[in-house]
């Protein structure tokens, strides 16, 4: 059998082009392996080879999804690979969404097997785990070797059209696909066995896990805007200059509460962003671009809204654990409620 042909997708960072300042990099294709592709090639042990690498900036992909998709599909088509691999993206949100989007597109449009990898909390995981095989990885590139190892194994199977085992066996995220099989014992016995284990407080594995729908019902609309107190919250990392609470540029472990009673306008003199996940030039130059204090102050003066709440809350939404974000907001939402805030505008980058 001839060598399996692989096309690999990575972002500007893993291609060594640059960080956030280069995140608007347009799609390009290079012959052979680049960056993490080298590790893949090593692990393929001659069975497969990356013939080309597609590189695209994360911001470019997410802001120009249709255009990026079209260009990348053309690039991939030219090489006619046996499998298309994207990432791994770990906990990089935009990269994960890009990997999910492009693998799904390649699979749908070109009917080529695809594979990607990312951390379970990456937003791309929830969005695409049902459509494509996503190998679960650690939350940072420190898990690269392990990720590539699992991805290589699954990639070879997919490319060869071999049967794919269960999510536990192969290391991918459950896709919600049910497969019939012959069990040793009939259902009633299995159910009773499970129940007995449960009563004994022993571990058991359910055969039908309930889906985890954490949805919150929308609250009623604001009736009287002219008398409403509006508060601002952001995950875009806007903080007073100098970042007094030392909110981390990624994986934030805290949030800040800041008084804006004396501000009609945020400027580069007094505020900045602590966020390490996007190019900070625009937000530092004019923080209103993320936290629109100037406009809300105008609307307050004009009587459109009753009042802009004197405190805003901010954290950095960059690889921040969902559990942390939940904890932050549960805490400050109580304060907002006690302060008589009627509605919140939450801005995200």
């Amino acid at each position: 059998m001839s060598k399996i042909k692989v096309v690999h997708y990575i972002n500007q960072f893993f291609a060594g082009i640059g960080g956030e300042e280069k995140a608007d990099h347009k799609p390009e294709v290079r012959e052979g392996a680049v960056g993490p592709g080298m590790e893949f090639n090593k692990r393929f042990k001659g069975e497969a080879e990356i013939v080309a690498t597609v590189i695209c900036g994360d911001t470019y992909f997410n802001e120009n999804t249709e255009d990026a998709k079209k260009k990348i599909l053309e690039m991939v088509k030219k090489y006619n690979p046996d499998i298309f691999i994207a990432g791994p993206a770990f906990n990089a949100g935009r990269y994960g969404v890009a990997c999910g989007t492009i693998t799904k597109a390649v699979n749908d449009e070109l009917q080529i097997p695809v594979l990607t990898g990312m951390y379970i909390e990456n937003p791309g995981a929830d969005m695409f785990k049902k459509s494509v095989y996503i190998v679960e990885t650690k939350n940072s590139a420190a898990g690269m070797r392990k990720a590539v190892k699992s991805m290589t194994k699954l990639a070879l199977k997919l490319a060869k059209g071999e049967e794919i085992g269960t999510p536990e066996e192969e290391g991918y995220m459950p896709r919600g696909i049910r497969k019939n099989y012959f069990a040793q014992e009939r259902g009633s016995k299995r159910a009773v066995d499970m129940l007995i284990k449960k009563l004994k407080d022993e571990d058991f594995t359910t055969e039908y896990p309930m889906p985890d729908f954490d949805r919150v019902e929308p609250n009623p609309a604001v009736k009287d805007l002219a008398n409403a107190k509006i508060a601002l919250v952001t995950s875009g990392g806007i903080v007073p200059k100098g970042n007094p609470d030392h909110i981390e540029s990624s994986s934030a472990s805290r949030y800040g509460k800041y008084d804006i009673a004396d501000f009609n306008d945020l400027t580069s003199e007094d505020h900045e962003t602590a966020h390490g996940g996007y190019d900070p030039v625009y937000a530092n130059d004019d923080p209103d671009r993320v936290l629109p204090v100037d406009v809300l102050r105008d609307l307050e003066k004009e009587g459109v809204i009753g009042e802009l709440h004197r405190y805003y809350y901010a954290t950095v939404g960059n690889g921040t654990a969902v559990s942390s974000a939940k904890k932050f907001a549960a805490e400050f939402a109580k304060e907002l409620k006690n302060d008589g805030v009627d509605a919140v505008i939450l801005t995200s980058t």
Binding site: M127, V233, F328, A329, L336, I345, S348
Partner: peptide, 20 residues
């Protein structure tokens, strides 16, 4: 964060670039 604010009983609007 959006959900926790909503859960607390305050209507909230999310202004963001990546809608999905």
């Amino acid at each position: 964060m959006v959900k926790e604010i909503e859960r607390a009983g305050i209507p909230v609007v999310h202004v963001c670039t990546v809608v999905p």
